[in-house]
Design a protein around this nucleic acid. Structure first.
Lengths: 216, 216
DNA sequence: GCACAAAATTGTCAACTGTCCTAAATCGGA
DNA sequence: TCCGATTTAGGACAGTTGACAATTTTGTGC
């Protein structure tokens, strides 16, 4: 029932500018620990002290690196979101494959990622936060805009006859549709074992609707 | 930019058994206020004192009706989830309409509900909570199972040739697909104004995939 | 080895949290 | 109207929270 070991880093630190190497490592430990608590016990449990003690350090030390809780949350989200952004950037460039197949591959990757513990746990927290925090809201939708971009491109190849707006709506639907699976077929959800079957349905459905869509 | 006035109650109190009418009204006020805070400011802001003072009452009074915070949260979720359950129950029974049309109607209702402030704000909180709280997890998936039931029925009418499992997977995909729209095209989200367009795409896509699905 | 910045530690602060308790006020049925 | 059940007020409690100041330890570059 455990998770396959993830080779990809689930957290991308911003480049170190000045400061000692040790401090940089400390900050990475802090963010990694904070993420761990967020995933395992939720946002409410992710207090400054909780993070500090889980790091084996004192509160004052934590507040030295991240003066306020808001600073910590901001940097944590930035680090996690950045890790997705570099992953997506790597996927976009895969030429010599027909667009249908590329669409299937991209969607397959995204849906399989949804089955991972980190994604299943992290994003619902993010969605909830985005409803009440402007910074989270903007950063999150910035990420999703990047994640949608490849979809829009592929759809444009498949359906050059469609308007830009229609293509966007299709990509939006496909993207949102996949994200919705998180709650129902994500890690340790009731229908986690149906994820592969639903993935097949989803991909077939997406290709169909892109091929057959007619503007109203 | 405001919400059209909702006539349907967004919170269904459990039947009053014993006690004075006053106490019953107080409990309703408490739950309604707690929901309001949850929607407007998030789960973290929904503290006992915050709820009590927003109700214009003292903390001691709140803890009389809901001794612990967990009691309050449990009852709040039950009340909100129940309101959805009675709505769904009303929709199920609408005979004399072809299944495609019924599928379109049910999905249309659900997607339009996703555009409401209450739904857009409440459910992401629920999803996040469900990841770390067994009670919320079970109650939430109980709700979704009921919400999916009509879909499964309609799909069974449209595709009696399919296996039970295949029908379920289709319903699961359709249901999850719609829920995913919450984050992107829900109330005051970046693409809220695309919700009607995406609704058309979604419904067409759902009917297509149910009609054309072939077991692997 | 020195000087100094960076890092880490300790302790304190007011504010807030959930829970519990008792006394007073209020309500509804007899 | 009166009495018991129900509801409310008010306070006390221990524990937690985020923020901050003062201090010591550590590491780096010269």
């Amino acid at each position: 029932m455990d998770q396959p070991p993830k080779l990809v880093t689930d957290l991308l630190m911003p480049g170190r500018e000045g400061g000692y190497a040790k401090g940089y490592e400390t900050r990475e430990l802090i963010l990694r620990t904070a993420l761990h608590i967020l995933i395992e016990e939720g946002y409410r449990a992710m207090s400054m002290r909780r993070v500090a003690y889980a790091c084996g350090m004192r509160l004052g030390n934590l507040t030295y690196h991240y003066p306020t809780r808001e600073d910590l949350v901001r940097e944590l989200l930035n680090a996690v979101i950045s890790s997705y952004e570099v992953e997506f950037a790597a996927i976009v460039h895969a030429p010599g494959v027909p667009p249908d197949e590329r669409l299937a591959r991209v969607c397959g990757l995204i849906i399989e990622d949804i089955g991972s513990k980190k994604t299943t746990r992290f994003f619902p927290e993010l969605w909830a936060l985005a409803n009440h925090d402007t910074f989270v809201y903007e950063r999150m939708h910035e990420l999703y805009a990047r994640a949608r971009a490849p979809l829009v491109e592929i759809i444009a190849e498949m359906r050059p006859d469609l308007s830009e707006s229609a293509r966007f709506d299709l990509a939006l639907f496909i993207s949102a549709s996949m994200e919705g699976l998180t709650v129902f077929a994500g890690f340790q959800t009731p229908y986690a074992e149906r994820l592969p079957a639903v993935e097949q349905i989803a991909i077939r459905s997406f290709i169909d609707i892109v091929r057959s869509f007619r503007a109203p």
